[in-house]
Every structure is written in structure tokens, then in C-alpha cells.
Design a binder for these strands. Sequence first.
DNA 1: CATTTATAAATTTTT
DNA 2: TTTATAAATG
Length: 702
Amino acid sequence: MLEHMFAPSAEDLSTDAGQDDEPPWARGLNQAQRSAVCHGDDPLLIIAGAGTGKTRTLAHRVARLIDDGASPDRILLLTFTRRAAAEMTSRVGGLLDASAARHLWSGTFHSVANRLLRCFSANAGLSPDFTVMDPADAADLLGALRSQLDLPVTQKRFPRKETTLAIWSRLVNRQMPLSDILENDFPWCSAHEDALRELFIAYTDRKRSLRVLDFDDLLLHARALAAAPDAGAGVRAKFDHVLVDEYQDTNALQVDFVEALLSNGHGLTVVGDDAQAIYGFRGAEVTHLWEFTDRFEGASRVVLDENYRSTTEILAVANEVVAASETLLPKQLRAVRGDGVTPVLVTCDDEADEAVAVCDRILDLREQDVDLRDQAVLFRAGHHSEALELELARRDIPFVKYGGLAYLESAHVKDLVAMLRLAENPLDELAWHRTLSLFPGVGPVRLRLLLDHLGFGSDTEEIEPAAVRAALGDDEIWSPKVSLEAFAMFQTALAHCWSMPAPPVAEQIEQFVDVCELLFVHRYDNATDRLADLTHLARTADDRPRNEFLTELTLEPPSATSELAGAPHLDDDWLTLSTVHSAKGAEWSAVHLIHAADGNFPSDMALTDADGLEEERRLLYVALTRAKDTLAVSFPLRYHVTKSLSDRRHVYAQLSRFIDPLTDRFEPLVTEAHDTQTTISETSSVTTTDEVENFVHGLLSR
DNA sequence: CATTTATAAATTTTT
DNA sequence: TTTATAAATG
């Protein structure tokens, strides 16, 4: 398959352009893209603005490398999301023999770290069968440790367990002292500094004894392995080429890892855009992008600045947002596509009004043959779409939401997964914790007793799976208060999983779902919905081995809420709702940006320092540059203070400070709202019935 | 004495 | 939706 007799230089290709005997990877590239694709093995930095064909360039470069004889399994492609990795692999596959593309190492830093750590577990000093905790597990462990530690009671409320994990994560990724992290990013938690320190120490110890890694540990261990003088030699010899996408969003940990893999930069390609750096909260620093050419001798730089995505009008708005920044180097993307329609700025009365206006616009566009698939609603924070989701449900408009609460994090899925993990590994104390707590009559105290009985005492040394299984049989440890019936069922299900030959996974899940049925009734008020959800999950298991099913679920969970839930009316056309962060790298014909009000966008919480404000600006830039043909920005004039529907108190909002100076680039639109004082009585009665209706629909849709 | 129920109060973005 | 606290219930 690698039959080409020569390695074409950039000059050859630019003169050959358009000829039929070109290899597929050389087709459809502009001058700059072509030079990036054909660049040799010296370190290469590609500065690629939004919509300039970054993915295409990267994919073509990989195809070119393989065509020139590089071995696919010695090429590492690091992308930001799984979606990007899949996209890249399929594009490379389209350019050459698809089987070659399958041998590429491509994925996120975390999934690649996981793979490498398993290959080289001995060198990394890890047990080969270590488990990866998802953030929910990690938070649960932190929560459990906190209650075990008896940390001193203070005046101020202790942060939620998810917050403690966020603090830990930022500590690791920023590599800064705890006191600094608290002071800068979590000032309301600084009263608990000592307690948190104690908690994190216990957390680290516990993870080691449980042989589990959290997401951040994956990066820490991968970096340590790659940098180890002797033990790391194998990893360092593994790749000839490393390509990193979204380099502006890498943090020091990730950069260290990459640089350890290819220490002289030979074979290294990075792609990034400083204007799209939006992961500062995860410790990412744009300086890595700027320092690249200084860091590696002989590094080259290619700039892609021709935008193929958006109309002139949309790009003009985006360019102006960047131009107003004092930290970003001034740069203008050139619109290749030409003129389109003027973006619209919609002023709405309140959130509900905005939801109605957005729905109207979406349906209008669909009338004009813009499918729902080609439209997206973007927002700053996951909960900003709440009102819209109600309205979409009311009108029967199907949608998929990216960002916000992930499906896997919903309580009932975690319950089932915990049971499955026990089938996989009876030593999984976290899973016992979750499962046992599910039984009525089991609170913190009895849970402790039960765990002790199973062998997970405080002197947790070596436990044998057999011992745990044996301890399970002692019925007398269960007080009469505990539902023996449910527990007996659970034991039967476990025994079934362990029987030889192993029954199909779907069947194992089914038995656990039966147990859940018994337990959920007095635990969740919408038990039926949740059980139906679990049945869907069982179906996705197919006949894969149980551990494969579980690992994939942990490291690569479904990214959208309905990806697994399989909503009935999703068959053909649906709308995308997404946080701006999750929308990175994607594009739609029509983009509706909602809640563009100061306080939401930029977010109030980001305004403590100048860096925060700049990151919000870049985030807006990312949002605007997702649009190909039409762009609508909307904001409500009033926000209701409470969620209560009867409470009519509200606060006034203002247009985002980033958009405010640009209003002349928009076509202004004011929704025909119930305007002010004159119609108050009418308005309130109309609104009230609407509210009642919304409320009822809300009840029905959940 | 342990557990459940009731009530009030919460800060965002992701692998 | 989760957490902390207080009161009520087995």
C-alpha cells in the first residue's frame, strides 16, 4: 500500500496542483495547508484560525506521512475530544487504505495515557489491572473519606464533594500550592484549607491501596513514565510522529508528556489558535503555543488564515471581538465565502420570551430548508438552556444536549454500574459503598458495619475475593430492618454473574435491573423512567466482555444525554443544544447564541481577574465562529430571581459587554413581548396560564 | 441509638 | 441535586 516512489516536495505539489495523478491527500489544499501537509519531520507549529481547515490539514498530513512510509502504529494523534479523534481517523481513512488508519494511535490525552500505562504498567509501577475512576466515583470517594476523617467542624459550610474534586484537579493541573489555588479560584473555601489538605492526603493514600487512578492521575503517571530515565525508554521509543490538536488548550502536564516522548521535537506537529484558548480553568496556558518555536531548534511555523466556513458578515463580528482584546495579537481571518445575511440581535422580554423567540426562529429556518441538524443553540452554562428545553418539549422539537449533566452521572446509572463492577471485582470498595447504601435501612453506621464484615476494615491490607464472597453468605449480619428479600435477589444475581460459563452481559444486567426495580421504588419518585433507562443501557452492552463494556463506559461515556437514552422521536432530524465549550471544533449552518447578557456571558464568576475576562471573550469568539450562514444572538431584558413560577420578582439584565460595541453589525430585533405598564393585568393573566402550562409540561416531561 | 424525614442553602466551563 | 442540621420515628 505504500507504493509511492517519491516524496514530493512542497514546490512540486504547488506546480502539480490540479493534476489527476496527485495522491488523494494532496488534493483540495490551499498554499498554506499544502506546505503544512508536506512539511518534513522538523518541529512544526500550525497556527490555524477558526474555520481555516485545521482538521483537514492535520488529517491530510497524517495521510501524507503514512503514504511516505511512516508506520501508522508509530503515529500518535492527540486530540481534545473523542469526537475529534474519530473525525480525524475517518478522514485519514478516506484518504488512504482505511485499515492503515485503524492502526493509528489517536485519542485524548487521557485515553492515550490509559492505554500506554496498561502497556507499560510494570515500568510505571502500577498494577496491570488498575481501575480508572470517573469523576463521579472520585467525588464519592472524597465524600466518603471526608465523613470517615471526622474533620473539624467550622463556621462555614464544607464544600460539596464535587467541589473538593474540582479543587484537587486544579491543584494537580496548575501545579500550584493549595493556598494559592484556594485564594485565586475558590476563595469561599479557604476556611477549610487544613481540612482539605488532610482530605487530599487521605485521598492519595486510599487510591493507592485501592489501585485506582482518577483522570488527573492518568496524566501524572503518564508524564512520570515518559520522563523516567530507564523505565520510560520503551514509551519514548514508541512513536516516530506525534501530532497535537488544540495545542493552545494543553496544560503543563500535557506539554511535559509530549516533550518527553519526542525530546528533540523531531516528528512533532502541533496545531492551535490562541484566540480559541478556553480551558484556562484546567490549567491550560497559551504560552505553550508561543514558546513552541523557541523551545525547539529548527521549528517552523505555518499560518492558516483563510476562513472557509463563515460569511463575511459573521466573520466581521468575530474579528471585531478579537480586535477589541488587548492581550490577543491583532489578526484578521479572511472570509473566502463572500457575503451572506446580516446577523440578528434579538432583544427579549424575559427568559421564557427568549425561548419562544428562539423556537420561532428555528422553525422559520427549517421552513427555509435548514434542517434541525444544521442548527445549534449555544450557551455559556449548562443550565442556561432550561427554559428553552421546556419550550422545545412543548412544541415537540427533538433535540440532543451536549455539556451539562452527563447521562452516566445520573444516579440510577451509577447504581447499576456499581453492581456490575462488583461482579467484575468483589474488592471494589467504592462499588460496595454505593450498592449497600441503596438498600433500605442502611445508613452511614450500618454501612460501616457491613463493610467491616466484608473485610474492608480500617486495617485494610490484603483481601481475597473468596473471603468477600464467603462473608456475603452470612445472613445474620443483616438486621431485620434491612430488606432481606432484595438482598437475597442481589446475591443470586451476583452468583449468576460468577457462574461458569459466564452468562451474556445483557443477561447479567437484566438481573441487576430486577434488583434495582425493588430498590428504586422507595428511593426515586420517578422509578419507572429510570428503570426504562437502564433497560436501554442493557441493550448497548451487546455481547461484549463485561470489563470491556465497563472500561469504555468509564473513560468514554456517551457525550450527550440522549445518546444512550434513545429518545423515541430522534430518528431523523434533531436540534443540537450545547455549551460553547462542548461546541468547540463543530460547525452549523445556523447558530443561535442565547443568554448573551452580562453576568452570563461573560460569566460573573470569571470576572475576578483580567485573565478571566479575556477567556470569556475568546469563548464568545469560539461561539460566533461556529456559524456558517446565519447567526442570531439573543438576550433577555429581565431574569426572574427565583425558580418559583409564581414569584414574579426579577432583575434587569444588560447586553453582553462584548456585543454592546458591535450592535451596528447586527440587525436589531425586539420580540413582540407584553410591553410594560399599560397591559399589566392582561400580561399577568396570560403569563400565568403560560406558566401553569409550562409547569405541567415540565412535570410531564421529567 | 440509628435512621429517616424535613428544611434550608448552594456559584461555571471538561477529560 | 446534594449537603448539613434538627426533629421525629423505629
